[in-house]
Design a protein around this nucleic acid. Sequence first.
DNA 1: TCCCTGCGGGAAAGGGCTTTCTCTGCGGTA
DNA 2: TACCGCAGAGAAAGCCCTTTCCCGCAGGGA
Lengths: 357, 357
Amino acid sequence: MATLSDVARRAGVSPATASRVINGSSKPVTDELRERVLAAVAELQYVPNAHAQLLARSHRSAVGVIVHDVSDPYFAEITRGLQRVATDQGRLLMICNSYRDPDRELEYVELLRGHQVAALILAGSGYHDEAFTRQLNEKLAAYEATGGRVAVIGRHEHSGDAVMPDNRAGGYLAGRELCGLGHQVIGVVAGPRILTTTTDRLAGLRQALTEQGRDLPERRIRYAEFDRDGGAEATARLLDADPELTAIVALNDSMAIGALATLRARGLAVPQQISVVGFDDMPIARDVTPALTTVRLPLVDMGVRAMSLVLGAEGPAPRVEVLPAELVRRDTAGPAPLAARVSAGSAPRARRGDAAP
Amino acid sequence: MATLSDVARRAGVSPATASRVINGSSKPVTDELRERVLAAVAELQYVPNAHAQLLARSHRSAVGVIVHDVSDPYFAEITRGLQRVATDQGRLLMICNSYRDPDRELEYVELLRGHQVAALILAGSGYHDEAFTRQLNEKLAAYEATGGRVAVIGRHEHSGDAVMPDNRAGGYLAGRELCGLGHQVIGVVAGPRILTTTTDRLAGLRQALTEQGRDLPERRIRYAEFDRDGGAEATARLLDADPELTAIVALNDSMAIGALATLRARGLAVPQQISVVGFDDMPIARDVTPALTTVRLPLVDMGVRAMSLVLGAEGPAPRVEVLPAELVRRDTAGPAPLAARVSAGSAPRARRGDAAP
DNA sequence: TCCCTGCGGGAAAGGGCTTTCTCTGCGGTA
DNA sequence: TACCGCAGAGAAAGCCCTTTCCCGCAGGGA
């Protein structure tokens, strides 16, 4: 690879001058030398060694992002938001997939710290795991001690800037909607129970059901991977255990799509025989048939906020932004089948104005 | 940030020794010193500066990847394949989204070169654009001249290692299927015409239609963005211009999903009134209703091959691997409506054994 | 006893760049 | 004429590591 001194030699100037021309330094350089340097750069196809530059400047510019999986639409949307702000500010993003493996998450924190990122964003749910949480916080604290900025998306036991989707309120919304439609026996297709996302959404849902005089026993909750196949499988187990189910809440849209697949395979009509509510409102939700009723989270906006937080001025106290969830009514949630309503007694539909907790 | 000399000082050893301990050098170090160094590392939460390391070692290890958009399922699948091989070999991947912007693609080649990547993979279609192609090739040549390895996925005017989906054969498969089902008037929902992917798929399709005595006039092709909304919009335009259409080929699955949305909105039954064939077989294809008939490309495998090519031994001549396309019959393609068949005369269904061109 | 060998450790030379500091030569002012 | 100031260029000191080279020392063979 051609180096800066190659360029300088070829142009007949010192490396210092070459560097100044190439980086558009404020220090003035005569046009003649400038020309010569530029010509040498072109002839040698010179590209500065990024590592040498980063080493020489103390300026840290890149931002590290740890997500569960960028190709998962949930994170793809968040990443879009992150990217937008980063690009506007001329920042390079280093994106790492943890694939929901806590150890890998820890490793990536180190890796990104080693790469001298100016800030770190942890997107994706926190874990219910004491030991992991402690380790993560130690690492983050060490990073912050050296001037690194950190923001988390979703609930983590980290006391710093955070943007959080209101998962609990979202769960509540889903539950209230189904109660309002007269459903009595509601099953849940849930993600891994170690994720706070799962437990928060579940808590909101449970609260809504309790308020409406229903209950949500553990046997009507099935935990599985947070993806399409996990949803399909959990739905099958749910149906086997509880044939009188009239509604299913899937704790994310991928799982909901898996649920729809299982229901279709078993010949159950949605929403006539059984209703489904998803979570997240991924882009594909409107394109499945029937179109998915789901709880929308402002994913892109979450990314935008998190990146703004981390690139903006440091606040005196940690800032926490909670972004609201919103119910999107499409075609997978309908009134409970008459038989079920009559036998169990119907509940009035919740009024639109009811507030979430 | 703590540096290596901080660690060395604290452990009471030289930086050389500290480095040897930390990197597990083959040079022996007494247990006593080793302990002291390790302790210092833990106390200081020391993480080596990756840039300094990369500068000091001449060893280049990371691999650069330029895709159109990782969150597009097409590239997500390819990336999965790339990642798998890279991870196995302990390589870091730097993934950049060009968002189908040629200039950005050029920029990223420089960026990655600057980051001293050991190899470069260009995933995503080539462009029909002389000037761009020349510039790209210059940059790639410069990179290869310094020992960099390059592989492309998809057709590019680059004479190096390549893995290519057989887009043309795929288009042919789609066309033959629809002709076999008796369709006479077939429309195409195409991606940007500047992409080789678009033109290759179109060429195969046209060949199939021509062989079966149909034609494919330009007015039955609508070019739009290669995504869901592009597909929806192109379908609408197609329908407006040619109401007697009985089949639509969408040149990728995202567009096909957009097409289905438009057809649903207009109350056209798929496949009873109109058939749809997609392309790529993205994961979601089986979950839309009706499930999408499409042309499958071995996306993950393409990624695996490309990464293997680029990390394996350098061949004497450029290697080109063509991966076959395969028709996946699901529920969106059915026989042409009787009225259309009778009025236009039906063609016999193609035999299964027919070879692609 | 002396020399050689080999082990464990440190000194120091890069790696490619940025940036401060220094130097030269010129025009302008007293 | 002497001096000052400044514009424009270069020398050189880092940035933080890795790795080669070298050195001192202990043990073994002659």
